[in-house]
Write a protein that binds this DNA or RNA. Structure first.
Length: 567
RNA sequence: UGCCCGAUGGUGUAAUUGGCAACACGUCUGACUCUGGAUCAGAAGAGUUUAGGUUCGAGACCUAAUCGGGCAACCA
């Protein structure tokens, strides 16, 4: 097996990103006893995507690099949106990427009791109050970013009354939306999040873990920092939109905690990929509208989709490595992701013969009714890859693209009167061809020269082109699915007043049937990856059955001829 | 009209007590090749948003402006 990509990038030669700088600074002053403890905190309300992969690689990566730990914590404070289906898929995806969290997965819901006690403490300190106003009124009183808010008439009620009301909220005495618990901070703060943020809302809902035990649920801002604290998190990495939440994150901890240990929130820029939408909401829309077959449709930027598409964990980790991490907005060329898979797949996949758009070819001077076996290398990139036997005979299939009746200049493939090498077999000479009723080539007639046999033949003429092929009588049929980007616009979600769905690529999936494969592929298993010689990287889809193979194209091979011929 | 954050080749990321801008992807040459793949060699492409300031010296520090992003869920 070839080396992994990571081995090629010596760690010590790389400079630090801004998060590593912060960590090393903290380490140098022995902050938090020089521990490094991170966490990946997904809400179990959807599938993980490549943007999460960036965060996963970052969080687990930092822990790994500094001999620390990384927790997996489900941020499950909103029972209306969350489900165990997502919990399971998230655990699967994180592990598939090659990471293992510290101990068992954590849940914010494990801290509901503690969070409640702390809320009571805040009320006792006069720092939280129950507001009876409806949502619309509270929202109006909050003001706007440019105008300060106004205080709630309930802001200064007695601690006893607050305690009583809050307990009754917890006991389920009030209907949804009738009251909230708010932190008493500053309604005139220039930071909207400090204007008496809601800490608890009443929700009579079934929680995926606590069932109907709770009638009130903490808000993100109130739950997150304290959860970090309870787990001993030192560096709480999140995306940029939480930057303005940080003062609130710190405020709660400062009111509640007396020890010197403190988690620190650090924000980084989320990943954007060209020609891709990344928000869970939009991805969900694709699934719901049946534009894709599901969360794991190979065109989806979800981890599950990429996995089914044939991406390897190593390639995604290498990608995350290459894109780096910073605080400025960024759009990564989706080509970089493709580069990362090609790089990995080139090293690890076996080459096989597959003709996805078959054209019949007859070698007229090859003895009828006989076949022979030729030896082919499995993987030229891997010296230990070995060889295999592939049948060769009088009737073959070649790629339609590999023959032209009237070829342009610099076309190195087959054309009347021209010669090519059949990979691993013989040099053939094209004599003539038949056409079908539409005038398209139907059968190509060639002659071969026995002396040019690959490797052993006494004659080894220089020919410009080498074609892949499949012997007709033993070929097996398969379905091949060719994927292309889902959107034709570089930034489908970046247009005001235009729905990303307007930019859908109508050709994002092409299904090819009757593709011809060399017989060895008969036993290919779901998920198994190959390079179809001269075409691209493919893997066996889960829709495959033993007599009806289905392959997904992960990514095509880099194709210089396509570029040249397009000019 | 407030507050917060950001600004370095086409894209992304570097430049670690301030010392003549580096790496990757992409692009373009060429070599090699029984994959028009891979590999190898090389090239072009930024003077770091702008204007001031500090300094012998600024991408880095300071000030202002410009541009971009974020902030007004009982979402996370």
């Amino acid at each position: 097996m070839a080396n992994t990509i990571e081995d090629a990038l010596p760690e010590e030669k790389r400079s630090l990103n801004f998060i590593e700088s912060i960590i090393e600074e903290d380490l140098s002053v022995n902050k938090n006893d020089s521990r490094v403890h991170t966490r990946f905190p997904p809400e179990p309300n959807g599938y993980l995507h490549i943007g999460h992969a960036k965060s996963i690689c970052l969080n687990f990566g930092m822990a790994e690099k500094y001999q620390g730990k990384c927790n997996l914590r489900f941020d499950d404070t909103n029972p209306e949106k969350e489900d165990t289906e997502y919990v399971d898929s998230i655990m699967e995806d994180v592990q598939w990427l090659g990471f293992q969290w510290d101990k068992e997965p954590y849940y914010a819901s494990d801290y509901f009791e503690q969070l409640y006690d702390w809320a009571v403490l805040l009320i006792r300190k006069g720092l939280a109050y129950v507001d009876d106003q409806p949502q619309e009124v509270i929202s109006q009183q909050r003001g706007t970013p440019t105008r300060p808010g106004t205080e709630s008439p309930f802001r200064n009620r007695s601690i006893e009354e607050n305690l009583d009301l809050f307990e009754r909220m917890k006991n389920g005495e009030f209907p949804n939306g009738s009251r909230v618990l708010r932190a008493k901070i500053d309604m005139t703060s220039p930071n909207m999040h400090m204007r008496d943020p809601v800490m608890y809302r009443i929700l009579h809902a079934e929680h995926h873990r606590t069932g109907d035990q709770w009638k009130i649920y903490p808000m993100y801002d109130y739950a997150h920092g304290q959860s970090d604290y309870l787990e001993g998190i030192t560096h709480s990495l999140c995306t940029l939109e939480f930057e303005v939440h940080r003062p609130l994150y710190d405020w709660f901890l400062d009111q509640l905690i007396e020890t010197s240990y403190r988690p620190r929130q650090i924000e980084f820029a989320r990943l954007n990929l060209s020609y891709t939408v990344m928000s869970k909401r939009k991805l969900l829309e694709l699934v719901k509208n049946k534009i894709v077959s599901g969360w794991d449709d190979p065109r989806m930027p979800t981890i599950a989709g990429l996995r089914r598409r044939g991406y390897t964990p190593a390639s995604i980790r290498a990608f995350a490595d290459r894109i780096g991490v910073a605080k400025r907005d960024n759009v990564i060329d989706v080509g970089l992701l493709e580069f990362s898979v090609r790089e990995d797949l080139n090293k690890i996949t076996n080459r096989v013969m597959a003709v996805i758009d078959p054209l019949r070819l007859v070698i007229t001077n090859y003895p009828e009714g006989t076949t022979e076996w030729v030896e082919l290398e499995n993987n030229p990139e891997d010296p230990a890859g070995g060889t295999r036997q592939v049948p060769f005979g009088r009737e073959l299939f070649i790629e339609k693209d590999d023959f032209m009746a009237d070829p342009p200049h610099k076309y190195f493939r087959l054309a009347p009167g021209k010669e090519v090498r059949l990979k691993g077999a013989y040099v053939i000479h094209c004599e003539n061809f038949d056409t079908d009723i539409h005038g398209n080539p139907a059968t190509i007639y060639c002659t071969y020269d026995v002396d040019t046999k690959s490797g052993s033949g006494p004659k080894q003429p220089k020919v410009k082109g080498t074609l892949h092929w499949v012997e007709a009588s033993q070929a097996i049929d398969a379905e091949v699915r060719l994927y292309d980007r889902l959107f034709m616009d570089e930034d489908p979600a970046g247009h005001k007043d235009r729905d990303p769905l307007e930019f859908l690529n109508p050709d994002s999936l092409k299904v090819l049937r009757g593709c011809k494969l060399e017989p060895a592929l008969k036993s290919a298993k779901t998920g198994e990856k190959f390079q179809f010689q001269r075409i691209g990287y493919f893997c066996v889809d889960k829709d495959s059955q033993s007599e009806a193979l289905v392959f997904n194209r992960t990514v095509s091979l880099k194709d210089n001829w396509a570029k040249v011929s397009a000019k």
